[in-house]
Design a protein around this nucleic acid. Structure first.
Lengths: 229, 229
DNA sequence: AATATAGTGTGTATTTTTTACACTAAGTAA
DNA sequence: TTACTTAGTGTAAAAAATACACACTATATT
């Protein structure tokens, strides 16, 4: 192999923008680095791609190591390959985003050694990030702004049962603008992929909203047909 | 550098889907390989990323080596990182597409040594391709189907002066379906980025169509606003 | 000179989608 | 009981998308 592929080899890494929705805020998971370069800086979770794993597998592994979660929908969105983007050598990085259900049970388990800690941070209040991670994040946010108009990724951020107001909230946070309540409901229900439950929100000190769930079956039937917000 | 980035390194390559429009057909540039693996097979043009070039630069270089063209709009669209996609070792490849003006003056100059020849081939009649290049092509075509609805990439395929019928032709070939002539013209003119010339098509044995050109200035003013077909 | 041919160029009516907009209902807390 | 807070609903107007057919014009042919 080395004889036939003699040229320069590069390290290849994965960086992940992990989105979560919590208490009305859109957040991403950041780690505080424990190693040089950018020791003590905040950065996107990431790692080098291993010899025996595909880049997709590598992304899943990183997510799993960090959160204990598997089977999360991740999408690759861009590869950053500037020569000097890593101060210690040539590292080309493939960026993924994922949408995670936060809340309660799924505690984070930052097992990686390069991280002192991992923390969910509001995307509107991000600290200064190491490497070119601000840029990688910006592109990731742009990507999901487009994606959310065609794919039901918003529901991945929400608990299994959710209210329409919560859905609208997610859309507003990602798109960065207010939407009209009546028009939003009309539209999102018109796709026929939400199932109204006989259940109401609990523990609120005002009128409880009806809960809905995402109907994967109905969505599967739509497949190919594009949803459009 | 090697001490701090000790892990497995991979070869990183670029593969390009170069689209061209010619005689009413949508084509891509393929090369016939001169080297193992897949010697004598058709494949997408591509090469390894060099130590001192970014992935974008590498893509431009490959395009330049193959066609002699510079300053062509290229967009990265996906990175293919399966472990065994290259029979001789681990090669992660970053795919780009480009839209090229064919016709006349710009002869191809296949300078690369790995190619016996390079040829424009109708996308509906592609030969069997080496590696996972069929898959890479499929994704590329999908990408431009989406892109053509929002970005004026269709004009990149056409000569400087073109008729509306030619534009419609490009759209129909890329989208893979017939469009209504009157509605198409209404819509494409409504963006205000085409400039009608005082000139007609020549050398046709029927009524000559009016020529138009793409108005970059007007398009620049639209920037941010999304065009939508 | 007349005619056949082949693509150009144009308008309107209908349907669908998008937008704008404000009040009543229901539940909780004081 | 009242005040508060969010849930939930409809309609009219505007804009965009669709469906659809024929006369025009330049050339080539006889």
């Amino acid at each position: 192999m080395k004889e036939v592929l003699p040229q320069f080899n590069s390290a290849v890494s994965i960086d992940c923008v992990l989105f979560g929705f919590d208490g009305g805020e859109l957040k991403i998971l950041l780690i505080e680095r424990n190693e040089e370069p950018f020791k003590d800086w905040w950065a996107l979770p990431g790692n080098l791609v291993g010899e025996d794993e595909s880049v997709d597998q590598s992304a899943s592994r990183i997510l799993h190591e960090l959160t204990g979660l598997s089977d999360v929908y991740m999408e690759q969105y861009y590869t950053f390959g500037e020569v000097n983007r890593h101060p210690q050598g040539r590292v080309i990085t493939v960026a993924y985003y994922a949408m995670l259900r936060l809340g309660g049970d799924k505690a984070l388990k930052p097992l990686t050694t390069y991280a002192k800690k991992a923390q969910w941070i509001n995307v509107r209040e991000l600290p200064k990030l190491g490497f070119d991670h601000q840029h990688i994040f910006d592109k990731g946010l742009e990507k999901i702004k487009r994606r959310i108009k065609h794919l039901p990724i918003a529901f991945e951020l929400l608990p299994e049962k959710f209210t329409l107001t919560q859905v609208q909230n997610v859309y507003e946070l990602i798109l960065g603008k207010k939407l009209d309540k009546r028009n939003f409901r009309k539209k999102i229900l018109s796709f026929g992929v939400l199932k109204e439950l006989d259940e109401k929100q609990k523990g609120v000190s005002f009128r409880a909203a009806t809960l809905y769930k995402f109907d994967k079956r109905k969505y599967a039937k739509l497949f190919g047909k594009e949803i459009s917000f």
